[in-house]
């Protein structure tokens, strides 16, 4: 049973992919999709459909998969590294820093996706660096001090963001607000190419360290199990920051994925990171892909995917907590 569930979770992106390939404001029949993939040279397909499929839908799908994988795996890893089930990538201040960076880019240099993403990435990393430094002040870097430092840093960047909102032209603010809600509407191949190396590297690293993540979730006790605790912890925190910052910089704050997906996987497969990490990667990718497919089809306007992940994620998370209270609370 567990084995089959594991296979199902690992294969979930393969199930979500065709659904998403066939959904959108422009209807492309499965036949036409097949034709375009198998024999792209044949001119029988309308160029518009070609453009929709290759230039719009496919990069957006790939970006959704990347962002989903990145957020879930960094959520799962952070929870293990901080031995705290309620930690998510955003607790570290990544998203607050990134939103401030994006706002700054729009206000100072008038935006452009690349500038915005670059600035979001830089400030996301700065925020985490400050969080980590603050959490070390008392020398122990306990999970609680990390979370507290994250709250402090998030609050400060949040205040700075509001200051930018206040000073800036409301038209520019509208764009930052939309972006900060988490959206993939600006997906393009260049976005995929820009974010793939960072997310890919981080995800591979976290996957490779999956057993260590289990051991590190024992807390400082892991030292007595032969783990170079401080060094490995910093390395893994850096890897989670890397993937989160890349994901946030291309997609804004896609909320709840990093909390919901690892918990769901843990409920199904147990806490062992050897299955938790790979299943979080794949199921997280599928989850964000499906949510984004809804985001671009359900309403007459394009919705920010972060709104949907929150609307689906938050109540479901409550349900999970109630169902399995004894398991981790």
């Amino acid at each position: 049973m567990r084995r089959w569930l594991m296979i199902l979770l690992l294969a979930s992106p393969l199930l979500a992919f065709p659904v998403s390939m066939l959904s959108g404001r422009v209807w492309i029949s499965p036949r036409a999709v097949g034709q375009m993939i198998l024999t792209p040279q044949e001119a029988s397909i309308q160029p518009t459909l070609q453009a929709v499929l290759w230039q719009v839908r496919l990069p957006r799908i790939l970006l959704a998969l990347l962002v989903g994988a990145a957020l879930s795996v960094s959520g799962a890893s952070l929870q293990q590294v901080c031995w705290n089930p309620l930690v998510s990538p955003y607790i570290m201040g990544v998203s607050a820093g990134a939103c401030f960076g994006a706002a700054l880019a729009v206000v100072l240099w008038g935006g452009g996706y690349a500038t915005m993403q670059g600035c979001a990435f830089a400030f996301g990393c700065i925020a985490v660096a400050i969080t980590s430094a603050l959490s070390q002040i008392r020398g122990d870097s306990s999970p609680v001090s990390l979370v507290l430092a994250g709250i402090i840093v998030s609050a400060c960047f949040g205040a700075l963001l509001f200051m930018v909102y206040l000073i800036a032209d409301p038209d520019k603010v509208a764009q930052v607000v939309y972006w900060s809600m988490g959206s993939l509407h600006a997906a393009s191949w260049s976005g995929v190419i820009r974010s793939f190396p960072g997310i890919g590297l981080g995800v591979v690293l976290l996957y490779a360290f999956r057993w260590r993540l289990s051991v590190l979730s024992m807390g400082t006790e892991a030292k007595a199990l032969g783990v170079a605790y401080e060094r490995e912890r910093i390395l893994l925190l850096a890897a989670t920051t890397l993937v989160t910052a890349f994901a946030v910089s291309v997609a804004g704050t896609v909320a709840w994925v990093g909390l919901l997906v690892p918990h769901l996987v843990r409920l199904i497969l147990g806490a062992d990171s050897r299955s938790l990490i790979p299943a979080s990667i794949t199921f997280g990718a599928a989850f964000v892909l499906l949510a984004d497919t809804l985001a671009r089809t359900v309403y007459k306007y394009d919705l920010p995917v972060g709104i949907l992940t929150t609307l689906i994620g938050a109540p479901f998370f409550l349900y999970l907590l109630r169902r399995s209270r004894t398991a981790w609370v």
């Binding site: 929870q79 147990g270 806490a271």
Partner: peptide, 15 residues
């Protein structure tokens, strides 16, 4: 001290 996550007992020993 109970860990934060519901590991299987076997996983704990494996550590």
């Amino acid at each position: 001290h109970p860990p934060a996550f519901p590991f299987r007992v076997l996983d704990i020993v494996l550590m």
